[in-house]
Design a protein around this nucleic acid. Structure first.
Lengths: 132, 132
DNA sequence: ACACTTATTTAGAATCATTATAAACTACAT
DNA sequence: ATGTAGTTTATAATGATTCTAAATAAGTGT
């Protein structure tokens, strides 16, 4: 299925910029982590036409809202996004400041035994900090 | 044990500012979450003498480094700290933008079955996002 | 193809949390 | 009391993110 159709089905017009961003983010079997700045660099390198920063922010947030990207909860000066939107967890190497995927099977099942009235669980995310 | 001794034992001089901050943060049985801004407001309300923002940042980071505070990994415009430095986890109510403590017993034990060469696990933190 | 409406892109400005600076001050050892 | 290393402070600087409003492009109906 072409990105343009997917976008349209999500209520997003398939613009040149969005299609380029889709290529960079999703046209690979591997999933990966990135910041807006990383994305900006990739766009500069992999494509000829530049996209303004504002558009990168707009688009990444639009994709996140649609569920095509996830924010990774971590304290860093920049926000990290993940193209892997399945339930999974992360190592964070404090020294290298690098994120590493943990498969779900690397972390046992997690059961939350507490409920909050009127609220349901949207996601469960584990961050494992690593030091030397 | 007095805060001044504790500070000295940690290699931090017990200054008026640090002692005031200790009072606000630790002089209660309840632990709590706060941002630098929250702390600034508390200091303004609970004490007569003001402390500069720079000092609040310096001190909170110093306390964190010494293990008296923990940063909570969450994507928010401000950094959240926790006076509860024991291993425990959090709910994050996305609508109210509020953190709620989870006791360790509310979350089963978490076993990480993956190792990274030369790295050891410093912490394991679970963030459970809540929606309506 | 054309006109029209609405969504999108964009450069640049604005915002805001945080960090850096460097001068004044203070704790503490001698 | 003096010296020095550690702290505090006001203020400036930084930098990621968001806002703005004008220009552009996409979709729709004719």
């Amino acid at each position: 299925m072409k990105y343009s159709e997917k976008l349209r089905n999500s209520g997003l017009r398939p613009t040149r910029q969005r299609l380029q961003i889709c290529e960079v983010l999703f046209n690979t079997n591997k999933t990966f982590h990135f910041t807006i700045n990383d994305l900006s660099e990739k766009i500069k390198n992999q494509t000829s036409k530049k996209i303004s920063l504002a558009t990168l922010y707009n688009t990444v947030h639009a994709f996140e809202k649609k569920g095509y990207l996830k924010q990774i909860p971590i304290n860093s000066s920049q926000t990290y996004f993940d193209t892997n939107v399945t339930d999974h967890h992360h190592f964070y190497d404090l020294k290298e400041e690098k994120l590493i995927d943990l498969k779900n099977s690397d972390v046992g099942p997690i059961n939350i035994h507490k409920k909050i009235n009127g609220k349901k669980i949207k996601s469960v995310e584990v961050l494992v900090k690593l030091e030397d």
